[in-house]
């Protein structure tokens, strides 16, 4: 057991760094699309040190403390219960049967924590941002849960390990090819949960109210920056496991998650920003229909 915890910490450390570098590279890609040079790819580390190096900070109450902690716990929890590399003792993490349901709740955990924390900060922009963020998250969750349920029904299991195991044996066994509808629904939902354009109106830096993090600085901000590195990676690993056959080596994981993240980046650089009500309407239209189609396909054509 102790060995397992040590391995989990190692893979957490590796993935946080991978996430930081990935975020830097993404910023670089955004800059390149805008024909700029952009920040150095290691800028995220400097920002992290700088936010930690603030000499004073302000607190607004207990929940203000706990908001970023909850968010970070949500990211780490999502990561810890997802097998990073299939069948590896080192990167298998703490996956257990039924973890799909746990992951679902971890997804929302961080956002709810932030809602409480941002609410206590007392800033109106934070409250507005959190309401908008929760509204959008709820809409994103609908196609995502449909996709997740489709996968669970298809492989008759709620364990990520079993789901990955069922997809082994060649590229044609991936969910991507056995059931393209739910993969489409899931990948469209992924766009919403990655907080990139067109669905990033909640905390885009260019919007004057940047939403939930308005009052956060110093150590709180550092926690949120770390979460911003780990949460998308955990999400990408989860999607890789659900739809793209998992990974047999750490390198395979990196390539596959890079592709998953790039999908959202390419969409992000090509499209302008939706308002919240537009994105909610959008999520409840195409991805929802695709998700239902996927479940129907699983139920009636695959058994």
């Amino acid at each position: 057991m102790g060995e397992k915890i040590l391995f989990a910490l190692i893979s957490l450390f590796l993935t946080i760094n991978y996430g930081f570098l990935m975020n830097g590279v993404i910023r670089k890609i955004y800059a390149r699309v805008g024909r700029r040079h952009g920040i150095p790819f290691y800028q995220m580390y400097i920002d992290l040190i700088k936010t930690l190096a603030l000499r004073t900070n302000i607190r607004h109450g207990t929940m203000f403390y706990l908001g970023p902690v909850f968010r970070f716990a949500g990211g780490v929890g999502l990561f810890l219960f997802t097998p990073v590399v299939f069948g590896s003792a080192m990167f298998g993490n703490l996956s257990f049967s039924g973890d799909v349901l746990l992951l679902l709740s971890f997804q929302f955990f961080g956002t709810l924590g932030m809602a409480l924390g941002a609410g206590e900060s007392g800033h109106p922009n934070a409250a507005i941002g959190v309401t908008r963020g929760l509204a959008q998250m709820t809409a994103v969750e609908v196609p995502f849960v449909l996709a997740l349920m489709g996968v669970a029904i298809q492989y008759d299991s709620l364990s990520l390990h079993d789901i990955v195991a069922a997809q082994q044996g060649g590229i044609m066994h991936w969910t991507l090819f056995t059931n393209p509808f739910i993969v489409a629904a899931g990948m469209l939902a992924l766009l919403g949960s990655f907080m990139r354009p067109p669905f990033d109106v909640v905390l885009a830096g260019q919007e004057i109210p940047i939403g939930p993090p308005t009052e956060y600085h110093s150590n709180y901000m550092a926690l949120m920056l770390s979460n911003r590195a780990i949460f998308p990676m955990a999400k990408a690993i989860l999607f890789m496991n659900l739809f793209f056959g998992g990974a047999n080596t750490y390198w395979e994981m990196m390539i596959k998650t890079f592709a998953v993240v790039m999908w959202s980046v390419f969409v992000g650089v090509s499209f302008p920003r939706f308002r919240v009500e537009q994105s909610i309407r959008w999520f409840l239209r195409v991805p929802l229909i695709l998700g239902i189609l996927g479940i129907v396909y699983v139920q009636f054509f695959m058994s």
Partner: peptide, 22 residues
Amino acid sequence: MTPRFDAYRFGVQWRPTPRQAN
């Protein structure tokens, strides 16, 4: 912020709230 001058190269970024800006 534009390609011509691009201050982001030097680690200069814009933040919308005074709490995070220095």
